[in-house]
Design a protein around this nucleic acid. Structure first.
Lengths: 322, 322
DNA sequence: ACGTTTTACGAAACTCGTAAAGATA
DNA sequence: TATCTTTACGAGTTTCGTAAAACGT
């Protein structure tokens, strides 16, 4: 006995005839006859009294009516609950990303995206190198991070330039006296205003920081590519950049950090751009084929960052002109 | 979603594996796999987490578990209720019979039969000539009455001899003075003792009652066959023999009544055997094929009345010998 | 290698539409 | 006759068993 048959009985009783029920059920009247015969055969009881002027319940049918109604209701409840869950799953985007992105970026992204797609829900999975495998196993819908997690389909979002984080104690051991002056000035400003404003023409190079210890996290691709040959490297077994920052703030050394991660930089550190400019590329990896909700989310992010980059370019043009 | 599938899910969860569930469900493990796939496909949600060491519910499965349990329960309730009703119907014997038999005989029969088959239930349908049609339409299982309702299969039970019911007022206009004396004597006894005991050698013939009015019901086969040519017939449009008896008791005439119907005869009437002996044959009509319960009932009645007739025959032999 | 699940495939059963037949006012 | 239900039949679908393959320890 399934929902279809019970709905059939319900339709027959409410319409009062097989032909009217057939119309309601969008099938032939013959199918209704056969369905009702099947129901009675399955129950082993004749429940319908067929007359020329309509169909009514037999005594046995009346006795079973409440049981049939209950069964129909519970089957509908089950189906509707499953539909809700399926819809929810359909609209839940499982995002795999680094912990820093998860904490600093995802809340903003989700808040913004809710305005566009209010029904969207997110599952955030934290990971580093495991994300690529999870993506391929279908455990997450998209991976959000740098090129290390690049997989089948890659959508570039923006480039995140690296900065060197310098504690006050080490300023005088970095770069030229002119640079040291500008860094001290920047540090004064930071301590006074709490904010951190970039200074034009201030940057550091590999040579500038060669004399101070470099604090590097394991799996840090900036260190891999840019300072692997410096002598004085302190390697910290942590992916958590706050750990690196507090190490640097204590004056143990300098560290590199993408601009993106600077929002919670301690007040006793300044961030100086690194030259030649190098940045990690932030983008989205996803399988060749994704659900509608996932595609929509990726498209939104792509558009959002394209527009942001254009705004920044316009601003820099204006700055250069002034 | 039907009971089979929900039972399958239940078995899988309780056994913790597809193969163990297959064993419990008496089917192949392949069938279980396919059934579970069908369930998940129908729900649109993956509810089972299959691992090498067993099967468990996914988060979605846990959310749906209570709905599935409810649906399964309500389907089981429906099926069991239907089974109870089917069994009850299977053991309900629909007996069609005359009102007099229904009131006088059926209660005794049912009471006796319950001792043999306690599960037996009866539906009594009152009718006269309509019983034959009802039997042929399957509305009743057996018809119990005289030969007028004889149909496909007829089982004779016993012969019910006719008596002539005589009120005190008319005794002196019936038969010979000797018979009149015996009738007066019988009437005294009846008035005194309340009971009515037969008197040997007392009977009446057609000629004996020719001088008094004969009260006949419509459809009365005794009247049809035996006194249709007497001049003074009062026809009463009633099948209810109590009506006839009270008419006779008031002295309007005599009437004929099968012995079987005499149990509630008014105290101011006596019943005198009619000669030549004539009686209606009481038996059972039923279709060529009946349910087990019906056959059992008919067999019981047949046996019961065969034994009763044998007892009566033995008694009459003893009486003759004494 | 072993135990478990999945897949391919074919036979049997089920479902339903078409069309004809039955039944009833 | 007109309307409603039942029945016969055939095409499409579902179900399930056999057997082989895939998968994880």
């Amino acid at each position: 006995m399934d929902e279809r048959k019970l709905k059939g009985v319900e339709a027959v009783l409410e319409e009062g005839s097989f032909s009217a029920a057939a119309e309601r059920l969008h099938c032939t009247q013959s199918a209704v006859t056969q369905m009702m015969n099947a129901v009675e055969s399955e129950l082993g009881v004749r429940i319908l009294e067929r007359t020329h002027r309509g169909v009514s319940l037999t005594r046995e049918g009346r006795e079973l009516e409440v049981y049939m109604q209950n069964a129909l209701d519970s089957l509908v409840f089950l189906r509707e609950a499953a539909e809700r869950i399926a819809k929810r799953n359909e609209e839940t985007i499982r995002v795999g990303t680094f912990s820093s992105i998860a904490f600093r970026w995802m809340p903003v992204i989700i808040e913004r995206y809710q305005e566009v797609a209010p029904e969207a829900a997110f599952d955030i999975v934290i990971g580093t190198t495991s994300l690529k495998r999870k993506l391929e196993l279908g455990e997450i819908d998209v991976a959000l991070g740098d090129e290390r997690i690049r997989s089948v389909r890659w959508t570039r979002l923006f480039e995140d330039p690296y900065y060197i984080l310098v504690p006050e104690k080490l300023i005088d051991r970095i770069g030229t006296p002119e640079k040291q002056r500008m860094m001290h000035e920047m540090m004064e400003q930071r301590k006074a205003a709490g904010v951190w404003t970039p200074v034009p023409d201030l940057f550091v190079t590999k040579a500038d920081i060669a004399e101070v210890p470099f604090i590097s996290a394991t799996m840090d691709d900036f260190a891999e590519l840019n300072v692997r040959d410096v002598s004085n490297v302190i390697t910290i077994a942590s992916d958590e950049d706050k750990v690196l920052m507090s190490m640097a703030a204590r004056g143990l050394g300098v560290c590199a950090m993408p601009e993106f991660n600077l929002t919670e930089m301690p007040a006793d550190l300044i961030a100086v751009p690194y030259r030649p400019e190098v940045g990690r590329v932030i983008g989205i990896s996803r399988p060749r084929k994704s659900r509608r909700a996932v595609e929509q989310f990726v498209t939104y992010l792509e558009k959002y960052y394209r527009e942001m980059e254009m705004r920044q370019r316009e601003e820099s043009v204006i700055q250069e002109e002034s």
